[in-house]
Write a protein that binds this DNA or RNA. Structure first.
Lengths: 149, 149
DNA sequence: CTCATTTAGTTTGTCACACAAACAATAATA
DNA sequence: TATTATTGTTTGTGTGACAAACTAAATGAG
């Protein structure tokens, strides 16, 4: 039986629950990023670079941005010493982008905080419910973006 | 039994499923907005104005933005004829912001598209699963933002 | 092998969005 | 009434995104 002093809120309609949940996570990522002066796009950037050393072009594809947007993104990250441009061994026009050790430290810290904060959010659910949520969300993710599988 | 030609993707870890689901929805909102030349913040703005006529200050609180950000946001929306500033009857310094009929038409269209697109996304789940998802997401939303209830 | 075409990345110009600090006008209060 | 607080705008700064024009290098057709 529910504790009468913390009344159960009414159930959000499906679409509302999807949208509001999305904003909830987005805002959390935003705040965590802000603590390290990182925007969400920068978190995504560093996250990608954790285990890759892509060209500018590949980065544009990963992030779904125009190549001209990548130039500025990398410029700013490089100015802060988080990434570096490494001349491509096979193409004199191109660079590969690599995390610096500072960048690696920062993204590891950030991802740890994300892990903890979102885990905390999900702590209102039981272990079974958390498994269910991951399963349902995964199904929608893969159905919508089949190329991810 | 699963169709061997559409292999079930592996289950995402909880935190990954939360983050990726959030981006999935965010991207969908972005695309739907773009079809009407609306950013996500503008969709949120118009959505708030659907059933309110707040002051600039109240708008800043609703959207979690600085008041100086609201000036520009409303300027742009007003230039497009989506909202109007109405002199406050009680405070000669202030305005209330009101949707125009064009703005109302636009947000109604947009929200209908959001409703449909997200409903489609959730169509890979059974009715029971959709109810479960809404329930689990709602629990996390209200636990994280108790003032919403 | 050479010339035309394509590709990789940058530059330039434009705009939206967000903040902070300074400001003007009005409201509230001591 | 005089001081203080509040409302909203302005100004200045920075990030992020795109498109179009551009440079340099790679590729491919003949």
């Amino acid at each position: 039986m529910t504790n009468p002093f913390t009344p159960s809120p009414h159930e959000l309609p499906l679409v509302d629950s999807m949208v509001q949940f999305s904003f909830l996570i987005h805002n959390a990522l935003n705040k965590i990023g802000a603590q390290h002066d990182l925007s969400i796009i920068q978190i995504r950037l560093l996250g990608i670079l954790r285990d890759r050393e892509p060209s500018m072009q590949q980065l544009a594809q990963h992030l779904g941005l125009d190549k001209s947007s990548i130039t500025g993104l990398i410029d700013r990250a490089q100015r802060r010493g988080l990434v570096e441009r490494v001349a491509s061994p096979t193409d004199k026009r191109g660079f590969n982008v690599r995390l610096t050790s500072d960048g690696m430290r920062l993204i590891e810290e950030g991802e740890a905080m994300i892990e903890q904060q979102l885990t905390d959010m999900a702590a209102v659910l039981t272990e079974d419910q958390r498994k269910q949520f991951a399963s349902l969300a995964t199904a929608m993710i893969y159905a919508a973006q089949p190329y991810l599988r």
